[in-house]
Lab assay of single mutants.
Amino acid sequence: MQIFVKTLTGKTITLEVEPSDTIENVKAKIQDKEGIPPDQQRSIFAGKQLEDGRTLSDYNIQKESTLHLVLR
């Protein structure tokens, strides 16, 4: 499925993911596309910070959902 990741600069990245993917996985995909190390990424969805060990389905993130990426 496709999800979108919006950065603070307003750029939107499209990722191909599975509901079973962990947040860690997703951060690795963002690193592949953007070169941002996962330890600098904070992902926010529906106002909640997403934890690395959880999966997209844990957070009820579905296709075409938009995550927000904040850098630390």
Rank of each mutant, 00 (worst) to 15 (best):
D21S: 06
K33Q: 12
R54L: 11
L67D: 00
T7G: 05
H68V: 13
Y59F: 04
Q41R: 05
R72S: 12
E64P: 01
Q31I: 08
K33T: 10
I23P: 01
A46N: 15
S65R: 02
D39K: 09
G53A: 10
L50D: 03
N25L: 13
D52G: 06
E18N: 13
T55C: 02
I44E: 08
I44H: 06
I44S: 06
V5Y: 03
V5I: 13
S43P: 15
T22V: 04
I36W: 14
P38K: 14
F45G: 02
K63C: 04
T22A: 02
L50W: 04
T12I: 14
K11R: 12
R72G: 09
E18I: 11
G35A: 05
T7F: 15
Y59G: 01
Q49T: 14
N25P: 01
Y59H: 02
I36L: 08
V70Y: 12
G47T: 05
M1F: 15
T55D: 01
E18W: 12
I13P: 00
L56S: 01
L71Q: 10
D58P: 00
L8D: 11
S20A: 08
D58S: 14
R42Q: 14
K11L: 10
E51D: 10
R42W: 15
E34M: 15
Q31K: 10
I44Y: 15
Q49Y: 15
I13A: 02
K27R: 09
L50G: 01
R54V: 06
S65G: 05
N60G: 14
P19L: 09
V26F: 05
T66P: 00
R72M: 13
V26Q: 00
I61E: 02
P38M: 15
V70E: 08
E16V: 12
T9W: 14
L56E: 01
K27N: 06
T9S: 13
Q49N: 11
K29T: 03
K29Y: 08
Q31S: 12
T9Y: 14
S57A: 14
K48D: 07
P19T: 08
F4V: 04
P37W: 13
D58W: 12
D21R: 01
I13G: 01
K33N: 07
K6R: 12
R54K: 13
K63D: 12
D21G: 02
K48H: 11
L50C: 03
I44W: 14
L67H: 01
E16A: 08
T22R: 06
V26S: 00
L50M: 06
L56R: 00
T22Y: 05
I61D: 00
L56V: 06
I36R: 04
K11Y: 11
I61Q: 01
I30Y: 03
T7A: 04
L15P: 00
Y59T: 00
R42A: 14
D39I: 10
I13Y: 08
Q31R: 12
E51N: 05
L67T: 00
Q49L: 15
I30G: 02
Q2F: 14
N60S: 07
I36E: 06
K29L: 10
I13V: 06
K33V: 13
D39Y: 12
